[in-house]
């Protein structure tokens, strides 16, 4: 049985005045095996973050079923849903730490929320989680004194303290430089290998997928348009079926400095568009720029 299973999951946001409702996730089915690392890639607005948030029901799907570790989350709410979430860790692009709490207190939060009532037990688990991300010596500092990479490691420790089965990562390295990105991804890989935690990572960087994922799902317009094993990316003759997959796999932003008439400017523009309004724009994937190399 897969650790995570999404069946025909759709998420529609109500329409703004005078506009069509936004279908952020459109009938996605996905099975994620236990202990694997699933990458979800796509441009901004493709619906990948919403899909990730569908897994722990931070965004409740408007249709379809979500199972995590054999429990149908879409059948739960209130107290039962909260309890289920104690087994699903999550980290974010912006780290989302509480700035007026120390590193240790931030990590302890997840244990308080998970109703680990004994203080000694909480303290022990905080130390354990901070040791995993090598930040035991920063326990008493405040987030403001940490670098971006360190903040993300605190967030990882916070997510791990409750010993979850699943770790959801929403663009965890998008705010970090490449060197720091490598460090953070290494911790995620270690967590997956040593603790057997199933990892789902959403990103717009194929580099991140290459470095970390076992499986890739490419999203566009709320749908998973393509999926393949990440190992394929290393093959010389690998050819994604869709143009968007090809573009993402090829990587690299191309700008024609001769003028904006070139098709190449389409891609960076797309990436800049705000998450939800983009859904209303229909982009024809065949117009995407050719891949470098």
């Amino acid at each position: 049985m897969p650790m995570i299973s999404l069946r025909h999951v759709s998420t529609t946001f109500p329409a703004a005045r005078g506009e069509d409702p936004i279908r952020a996730v459109d009938a996605v089915s996905l099975e994620i095996p236990q202990g694997s690392i699933q990458g979800i890639i796509g441009f901004s607005g493709a619906g990948k973050s919403t899909l990730l948030r569908n897994i722990n029901l931070l965004e409740r799907p408007t249709a379809g079923a979500v199972h995590v570790a054999g429990t149908e989350l879409t059948a739960l709410d209130g107290e039962a849903l909260r309890r289920a979430r104690h087994h699903i860790g999550m980290i974010f692009q912006g780290f989302n730490l509480v700035n007026n709490l120390t590193v240790a207190q931030n990590v302890e939060l997840s244990l308080k929320f998970a109703e680990v009532s004994e203080k000694a037990e909480r303290r022990r688990r905080v130390a354990e989680a901070l040791a995993i991300v090598d930040l035991a010596d920063r326990a008493e500092t405040y987030p403001a004194q940490l670098s971006g990479g360190q903040k993300q490691r605190v967030a990882i420790a916070r997510a791990l303290a409750t010993r979850p089965q699943v770790l959801l990562c929403d663009e965890p390295t998008s705010a970090l430089d490449p060197a720091t990105t490598a460090t953070v991804l290494q911790y995620l890989a270690d967590v997956n290998r040593d603790l057997g935690i199933t990892v789902v990572i959403v990103t717009h960087e194929m580099e991140v997928i290459k470095a970390l994922a076992d499986h890739v799902a490419v999203m566009e317009d709320g749908r998973v348009v393509e999926r393949f094993p990440a190992a394929e990316l290393d093959r010389e003759d690998f050819a994604p079926r869709t143009a968007i997959g090809e573009y993402l796999a090829g990587g690299g932003i191309r700008v024609d400095r001769g003028g904006r008439a070139a098709a190449d400017v389409a891609a960076p523009e797309q990436a800049d568009r705000p998450e939800q309004t983009e859904q209303t724009a229909s982009h024809d994937s065949h117009q995407l720029p050719e891949v470098v190399g």
Binding site: L58, R82, F92, N96, L109, F113
Partner: peptide, 26 residues
């Protein structure tokens, strides 16, 4: 910012816990 609130919801916090441990703290 709503970031820490969202993280707390993901951690399965109750509304009361979010108010006491996150909002009033920050």
């Amino acid at each position: 910012g709503i970031g820490a609130v969202e993280a707390s919801r993901a951690m399965g916090a109750t509304r009361r816990q979010i108010i006491r441990n996150v909002l009033l703290v920050d």
